[in-house]
């Protein structure tokens, strides 16, 4: 992967937040405060990917990315929340994960994306790996003020 600079990859082409009324958007927020939460988050994310009609490989990608991000927030960020959205745009459906924590934040974002980077209990692949599993990925962090990661994967399957 090209070591593009921190923050965004493949920024959304259109403002998919402006969802016309004939599109519904479902959203749910889950706590990330214990190891048990990680498990129930995986279940919730799996259900959302199924709902969005994802194939089995994309399901696995998104659930794995959620697991990585949630664990990051739990281990490094001292807990937080994961918000799950079903999003729609022209012709396709996506699942968006927003993981927020109130932890110490990340000082060197570029470094945090490097495989093998770790600040705590040894989860080197968390961020960079999760970014590769998703279509869109943004991270914002202020040292001392926590971290917000937003990651979306679009359904490329569109089974009839």
């Amino acid at each position: 992967m090209t070591g593009s600079h921190a923050g965004t990859t493949r920024a959304p082409q259109r403002a998919d937040k402006v969802v016309p009324a004939h599109h519904s958007t479902e959203s749910s927020t889950h706590p990330v405060a214990s190891e048990e939460d990680l498990l129930s988050i995986r279940h919730a994310v799996r259900a959302a990917t199924l709902h969005a009609g994802f194939g089995i490989v994309d399901q696995t990608r998104v659930v794995t990315a959620a697991s990585e991000l949630a664990r990051n927030a739990y281990v490094h960020g001292g807990g937080g929340t994961l918000t799950l959205d079903i999003v729609r745009r022209l012709g396709t459906t996506g699942v968006r994960l927003t993981v927020e924590d109130d932890g110490p934040g990340i000082e060197d974002i570029e470094e945090a994306f490097t495989d093998g980077f770790t600040t705590g209990a040894g989860l080197g692949h968390g961020l960079g790996g999760a970014r590769r599993l998703m279509d869109e990925f943004t991270l914002s962090s202020t040292a001392g003020r926590g971290t917000v990661v937003t990651a979306t994967r679009w359904n490329n399957r569109r089974a009839p």
Binding site: G91, T92, N156, R157, R158, P160
Partner: peptide, 12 residues
């Protein structure tokens, strides 16, 4: 949007 969905499916 309807067309887009068809194109998407076909390209896949």
């Amino acid at each position: 949007e309807g067309r887009e969905a068809i194109i998407h499916r076909q390209s896949h």
